[in-house]
C-alpha cells in the first residue's frame, strides 16, 4: 500500500492516515504559478494606486498630503503582499496558496494536520534564504537529499508539502461501477477463451489456481481502477509487467492460454470472489 513517497500518520484514535508527498515538479510549478499571480497583483495594485492618484489630481488638485497618504498606503499594501501572501494564504486557506491549489498540493505539519500559524510564519520567513540558495542550486540539492523533499524553511518549521486530491463520493462510485462492468465483461471473455481451448476449465472453481499476494492484489486493484485513464503505451507496459508477475507465480496451461489483460481481469474476478466479505 505504501509507496516510497507516502508518509503515514497514526492519530490519537489509532487511525492510520496516509499522505503522498508532493513531487519537486509540482512544487516548482506551484511556485511559478504563485509568482505569476503575485506579479499580476503587484501590477494591479500599482495601476490602481496610479489611477487613484491621477483622478485625485484631475478632480481636486492633489495636495502633497493626499499624495503622501496614498504613497504610504501603497507601500504598506506592497509590503503586506510581499511578506504576507504565502504566510496568510497558507495559514488561513488550509495550507494552500492559489498556486498550490491549482497544482493540488498543500502544506501540512509532519503529522498531517494543517500547518499552524507559527509553522507558516517560519517556513515563509526562511523563504528568502531558500530563494537565495536556489540561485546556486543548493535548495534543490537539499530537497533531493532530505527524505521528505523539504526545503530549509520546511525543515525548520517541521512541515511537508503533500498532494491533496479532492475526491467526492461520486468519483468513487463511478469508478466502482465501471470496474464492475469491466470485470463482468472480462469474466465472459475469459470463460470463452478457456472453454475454447477445449479443456472446459471453469476458472471460478478449482482448476485455475492463482497465487497472488497482497502486493499484487493492490497492483491489480489499482490497475483496474486506473486503466481507462492511462495512455495506451503506459497501459500496455503495465499490463505486460503485471501479467508477467502473475504468470511467474502461477504456472499452468489454462493461464498461459489467456492474453495478458484477460489474465489480469480473471485474477481480479477470482480475488474478489474469494474474500470479499464485509
Amino acid at each position: 500500500m505504501a509507496t516510497f513517497d507516502d508518509i503515514a500518520v497514526l492519530t490519537s484514535e489509532n487511525v492510520r492516515l496516509n499522505y503522498t508527498l508532493a513531487g519537486m515538479g509540482s512544487r516548482f510549478a506551484a511556485f511559478m504559478a504563485d509568482s505569476v499571480i503575485l506579479t499580476l497583483l503587484f501590477v494591479a495594485v500599482s495601476s490602481l494606486f496610479m489611477l487613484a492618484g491621477m483622478s485625485f489630481a484631475a478632480f481636486e488638485g492633489m495636495g502633497i498630503e493626499t499624495f503622501s497618504i496614498l504613497q504610504a498606503l501603497y507601500m504598506v499594501t506592497v509590503a503586506v503582499l510581499y511578506w504576507g501572501y504565502y504566510f496568510l494564504f497558507e495559514w488561513i486557506n488550509w495550507g494552500q496558496t492559489p498556486g498550490k491549489q491549482l497544482l493540488g498540493i498543500r502544506v501540512s505539519a509532519a503529522d498531517g494536520a494543517p500547518a499552524d500559524m507559527v509553522q507558516c510564519a517560519l517556513r515563509n520567513v526562511l523563504r528568502i534564504i531558500d530563494l537565495i540558495l536556489a540561485g546556486f542550486g543548493v535548495t534543490f540539492f537539499i530537497m533531493i537529499f532530505t527524505p521528505r523533499y523539504q526545503r530549509i524553511g520546511d525543515l525548520a518549521a517541521g512541515t511537508v508539502v503533500v498532494k491533496r486530491r479532492r475526491l467526492v463520493i461520486d468519483d468513487v462510485l463511478n469508478a466502482a461501477r465501471h470496474s464492475d462492468r469491466i470485470a463482468a465483461q472480462a469474466v465472459q471473455a475469459a470463460t470463452v477463451t478457456v472453454r475454447g481451448s477445449g479443456r472446459g476449465v471453469e476458472f471460478s472453481e478449482g482448476p485455475m489456481k492463482l497465487k497472488i499476494d497482497d502486493a499484487e492484489r493492490m497492483l491489480i486493484q489499482k490497475f483496474i481502477e486506473r486503466r481507462e485513464s492511462l495512455p495506451p503505451n503506459v497501459r500496455k507496459t503495465l499490463v505486460k509487467d503485471l501479467a508477467r508477475r502473475i504468470r511467474e507465480k502461477s504456472p499452468g496451461e489454462a493461464i498461459s492460454s489467456l492474453s495478458d489483460e484477460q489474465l489480469i481481469d480473471t485474477a481480479y474476478k477470482i480475488e474478489i470472489n474469494k474474500d470479499q466479505r464485509i
Partner: peptide, 10 residues
C-alpha cells in the same frame, strides 16, 4: 477487506 485504493484515498 474491500481492497479499494480509491475508496481508501477518499
Amino acid at each position: 477487506v474491500l481492497r479499494s485504493p480509491l475508496l481508501a484515498e477518499y
